[in-house]
Design a protein around this nucleic acid. Structure first.
Length: 767
DNA sequence: GTTCTAGAAC
DNA sequence: GTTCTAGAAC
């Protein structure tokens, strides 16, 4: 009893001392912890993605103390549990060590407990090693030391399974910083970042390195807007993008109208730019309420026709100066889509030097087909940098204007002229039904053809700038004269008719409009080219009859050049009757043939008959019924094949960027069982977004008048994934072996909207 | 589009 | 040594 009491008392003292000591230690630890500012870094990645290697590199070189919590080895060198990892990590944090959580952490649930470690005061980072599945598989196979196929296959299966469940981390989970690594370079950069992290340093918060869907869209927009700056741009692009970043993706308005006198010469400062913005808005607001006859024109010949920019800008300023005095109060506006446009900046500088009146001539960054709706600038006349055939197509301004104006412009143009010579222009009154008329208030389009310095285009001048400059001057003269004739014909006398009167005369509701229009129809400019049209028709006919030498004279659709080997489908489309050995069906608008190198049991091509339809990029609303015909013919053949073999499934679609010229629809069974399927490009061209389902193409053309082609550069060299279960495979032979037996249901995306054509099995599934 | 082939990857 | 890819030529 006595002894017991004594012991109890001793126990009490010991416990008390122990508690005090622990408290002291905890306080010290806390101080140490605060001083060391430890962080938790979750590595996120499949086996073989390089998580441990990442940790090793950082722990070797980074000056702060680290603990690596590895679930694979936490149990005395063997795999342990998540609880063990959490305990161990908590303890390391208490000792002021920063912690690497070296486990896959691929889904949110797996990460959640680790994100509670150390409470909110401990920063949580994620480093996502999102490397190609193929690389992870091959590394994990290698690491296991078993290179036999069986082990390799197992590793692949494990990695695949994990990657399919992968949920990329988000800041909302409780992370303060996320770094995404998609290749070895990203990994090395991230290692360097963490190596440089001293004991009390911290890294900035946010997401880094993510190339997510959003980023792609943004890139697409940037490409679309040609925001990729050309080298030697007179303006600092950094200034420009900072200046108006709020406008870049959303609607662009006003700010981009830059008066010549406000142009910032070579080294513009940000503050000047802001000033410009303010000034510009003021001008634009003024414009919105008035209706001064205005010609918006693109720089002629400097884009696709590769005319020297310095020389072109001299000529523009010279010709503008010459005409500005002749056209009364009318205005000329040089338009370019690109913010960093060199031609605009050259012209602004030169016009400013010559004191060209900035009320009568200025430059605008914007879409020439949306100057009213997009920029608040009323332009009743726009110029088109045309091709000699005066047809839609090609890229750039010509395609944009024809597309925005709708078929009305093409027919109205046809009435005026059939073709155009370099240096000439043709004035085309825009029918009031055209969206350009109703939406943008454009009453006339003036097609103008400039000199060509591009060897890939018709009438190449072979660097002869003496002739080139002459033709370019002539082109601007023809253009401005055409514009002057419009201004005159609307009673806008060269000397000071009011803008308002012009507006009233050309208003769509005005009954006098037709008469006024007729006046323009008979302008000199037009008479001249009606004759010319007859002259050139025979050559056009020759061209249509297959004289391929004339191919190069076709100024449209020339953004892509086709090698001689790429012409066979085109030749078949032009002369189906001469290719009866390969053609299995000839209809009015389409030809059907088996693919010469089928990539599946059934693989045929429905080929469009008709000139000027090289590929999807040429497709416009006017081709909608052709697209539907092609689809219907494809479906008809699919049904025939399904009658013969109900186990097949088919997709009908187009390659975004085909190798062979002439629009062709692939009808292909989804077994992909073919000796001709040999490489990544073959696979990915049918099993990534590079393959555009016919139903989607039809929808898109119907909605937008054309196909939006996102040119993702590496899409054809992407990793190989099964089109059914989406598993990744290291090479073509392995992939083929997998798809020969994969019975997974097709992804839901394919089962929607009739993208996949098949005979449903009795349980209603796609097999 | 395919074929050919050097050389990387296994 | 064999398999596979990727770039050039056509």
């Amino acid at each position: 009893m006595e002894i017991d009491r004594e012991r109890t008392s001793q126990d009490h003292i010991t416990r008390k001392q122990r508690e005090d000591k622990e408290e002291e230690e905890e306080e010290e630890e806390e101080e140490e912890r605060v001083k060391l500012n430890p962080i938790v870094v979750l590595l996120v990645g499949a086996p073989g993605s390089g998580k441990s290697t990442f940790c090793d590199h950082v722990m070797k070189n980074c000056p702060r103390p680290w603990a690596r919590i590895c679930q694979d080895t936490i149990n005395n060198g063997k795999a342990g549990t998540k609880i063990q990892c959490l305990t161990s990590a908590g303890s390391a944090l208490k000792h002021g060590k920063s912690v690497f959580i070296d486990r896959c952490n691929l889904d949110k649930e797996q990460r959640a407990d680790f994100l509670k470690l150390g409470g909110p005061q401990v920063e949580k980072h994620a480093v996502v090693l999102d490397l190609p599945a193929k690389l992870c598989i091959s590394r994990s196979v290698k690491r296991s030391g078993h290179e036999g196929n069986l082990q390799g296959g197992k590793a692949a299966a494990v990695v695949n399974r994990m990657l399919q469940k992968k949920e990329l981390p988000k800041l909302g989970e409780g992370l303060t910083r996320i770094t995404f690594c998609q290749d070895e370079k990203d990994v090395q950069d991230t290692i360097n970042t963490y190596n440089a992290l001293g004991p009390s340093d911290s890294l900035s918060s946010g997401c880094f390195g993510q190339k997510n869907a959003n980023a792609k869209i943004q890139l697409g927009i940037m490409k679309f807007l040609k925001k990729v700056d050309s080298p030697g741009d007179a303006r600092s692009e950094a200034n420009v993008s900072q200046k108006c970043v709020h406008n870049e993706v959303s609607k662009e308005k006003d700010h981009w109208i830059e008066g010549t006198q406000n142009c910032s010469v070579p080294s513009g400062h940000a503050c000047e730019d802001v000033k410009d913005c303010d000034k510009v808005e003021m001008i634009a607001d003024g414009n919105a309420s008035d209706n001064i006859p205005t010609l918006a024109f693109p720089s002629i010949s400097t884009a696709d026709f590769q005319f020297n920019l310095e020389k072109a800008s001299d000529i523009i300023v010279e010709k503008v100066e010459e005409f500005i005095s002749k056209i009364g109060n009318a205005r000329l506006v040089l338009v370019d889509l690109s913010h960093g446009s060199k031609i605009l900046s050259l012209v602004r500088t030169k016009a400013a030097k010559k004191y060209v009146d900035s009320n009568k001539f200025f430059t605008v960054v914007g879409d020439i087909t949306r100057l009213h709706s997009g920029e608040g600038l009323n332009c009743n006349v726009i110029a088109n940098a045309s091709n000699w055939r005066l047809k839609p197509g090609g890229g750039g301004v010509n395609a944009a204007i024809f597309s925005a104006a709708g078929p009305a412009l093409e027919s109205a143009t046809k009435e005026r002229a059939g073709s155009l010579k370099p240096g000439k222009a043709v004035v085309v009154p825009l029918p009031p039904t055209s969206p350009l008329f109703t939406r943008e208030g454009v009453t006339h389009v003036i097609h103008v053809l400039g000199p060509n310095m591009n060897p890939q285009r018709p009438n190449f001048l072979n660097n002869d700038y003496v002739q080139g400059c002459e033709v370019l001057r002539e082109a601007y003269s023809s253009l401005f004269e055409g514009f002057a004739s419009i201004v005159r014909s609307y009673g806008g006398s060269s000397k000071g008719s009011s803008g308002r009167s012009v507006e009233s005369e050309i208003s769509p509701t005005n009954s006098g409009q037709k008469v006024k229009r007729e006046a323009v129809y008979e302008s000199d400019v037009n008479k001249k080219y009606k004759g010319f049209q007859k002259d050139l028709k025979p050559s056009v006919r020759n061209y249509l009859n297959g004289k391929e030498d004339l191919d190069k004279e076709n100024g449209r659709g020339m953004t892509k050049t086709w090698g001689s080997w790429a012409q066979s489908l085109y030749n078949i489309a032009m002369h189906p009757d001469k290719h009866k050995n390969v053609v299995i069906e000839i209809l009015d608008d389409v030809v059907v043939l088996n693919d010469l190198y089928p990539k599946a049991q059934r693989h045929l091509l429905v080929l469009a008959i008709g000139e000027g339809l090289d590929h999807l990029a040429d497709v416009r609303r006017e081709h909608l019924s052709l697209l539907k015909t092609m689809h219907a013919v494809g479906l008809k053949w699919t049904e025939k094949f399904l009658d013969e073999n109900k186990s097949l499934a088919f997709r009908l679609g187009y390659h975004s960027v085909p190798s062979m010229r002439q629009l062709h629809l692939h009808v292909i069974s989804q077994d992909f069982n073919s000796q001709h399927l040999k490489n990544k490009k073959h696979w990915n061209s049918f099993n990534t977004p590079f393959f555009r389902d016919s139903v989607d193409v039809i929808q898109e053309v119907s909605d937008h008048g054309k196909v939006v082609l996102k040119n993702e550069d590496n899409i054809l060299s992407m990793e190989l994934r099964c089109h059914r279960c989406r598993s990744a495979h290291p090479n073509i032979p392995r992939l083929r072996s997998h798809i020969s037996s994969c019975q997974a249901l097709f992804p839901t995306g394919l089962l929607q909207n009739g993208r996949l054509v098949f005979v449903p099995s009795e349980d209603g599934t796609s097999k």
